[in-house]
């Protein structure tokens, strides 16, 4: 099950494998919104979490491949946790784990250094011999290489520590996404229902869909993975009987033309099917 975590009414995926599955198996894209672990101070490439549109999350939920989870309302430990034996146990476990990690890292680092010195020893010896030759015969006797074990230091500050991305506690409460709630207010909302109908219909035709706000629409529709393909359509969800001013038609049409995309007017029929009308500038000026 893919875990979708709710925070302030927004959907997030924190697990990397889940993110990969969502994209590769379910054609759901989302938006990375966190700092990239490798290089956090830039905005070109972002990292976890992956934020999902309400429609993206709902599709995964309806397909029953994901669960919607909220932050446990009950804290893992009460405020007076200092007396809680479970808490004390957890702290002790963490500290012990850190200690073990340090000892293991110390051992590994020493081993690595030994191996490194070993591989270098030959070269060092050769270098020394060469030097000696250049200096002429005689000179000092070959000094013994320092004992790797004795000179090796691995101070505690050098220990590598992980700042985990995902939650380390498995406290979770499922949210019922069918009904609107404080955590997930979308179910049954006319706007969301319309957008979801359109999203689902396009998705079922094999398209990749992302948020369309960049181009003033509801969705951007891609013929393939957005990593490798440009969007073809800017989808605009409109209530079928809502009057559209021609000025709006012109402005979205104009925008679509300038970015070489077709504007799609999408409406949901009374029987739930989605009708599409493509809007393109005629090329007549």
């Amino acid at each position: 099950m893919i875990r979708i975590h709710v925070l302030e009414g927004k959907a997030f995926v924190w697990n990397c494998a889940d993110v990969q599955r969502i994209r590769e198996e379910h054609r759901i894209v989302g938006t990375l919104v966190g700092a990239l672990a490798r290089k956090p101070r830039q905005n070109v490439r972002l990292g976890l979490p992956l934020q999902l549109l309400p429609e993206e999350a709902r599709l995964l939920l309806e397909k029953d491949v994901a669960t919607l989870i909220k932050n446990p309302s009950s804290k893992p430990f009460a405020d007076d946790a200092e007396q809680d034996p479970l808490f004390l146990e957890a702290v002790a476990a963490y500290q012990e784990e850190q200690e073990e990690s340090y000892m293991e890292q110390l051992r590994l680092a020493a081993e690595q250094r030994k191996a490194l010195l070993g591989s270098l020893a030959e070269r060092i010896a050769q270098g020394r011999a060469k030097k000696q030759q250049q200096k002429g015969e005689g000179g000092e006797p070959l000094s013994k290489p320092a004992d790797p074990e004795s000179s090796f230091v691995f101070p505690r500050e050098s220990m590598m520590v992980q700042l985990p991305t995902e939650r380390t506690w498995l406290g979770q409460e499922e949210v019922d996404w069918h009904l609107p709630s404080k955590e997930w207010p979308y179910g049954g909302q006319p706007e969301h229902e319309m957008r979801y109908c359109v999203f689902q219909s396009l998705w079922e035709q094999g398209y990749y869909i992302t948020s369309g706000s960049k181009f003033g629409g509801d969705f951007l529709v891609y013929p393939g993975d957005p990593m490798r393909f440009h969007a073809h359509y800017i989808a605009l969800c409109v209530t079928r009987d809502a009057p559209l001013s021609l000025c709006d038609i012109i402005s979205v049409g104009r925008l679509g033309t300038s970015v070489k995309k077709t504007v799609l007017l999408c409406s949901v029929d009374q029987d739930g099917t989605v009708v599409y009308t493509s809007l393109q500038w005629s090329g007549m000026q």
Partner: peptide, 18 residues
């Protein structure tokens, strides 16, 4: 709500950390 300390998430081994 399940209370199982340090059960989930990617925790790296000392070797991976190094």
């Amino acid at each position: 709500p399940e209370l199982r300390p340090r059960a989930s998430g990617h925790l790296l081994s000392p070797a991976e950390l190094l």
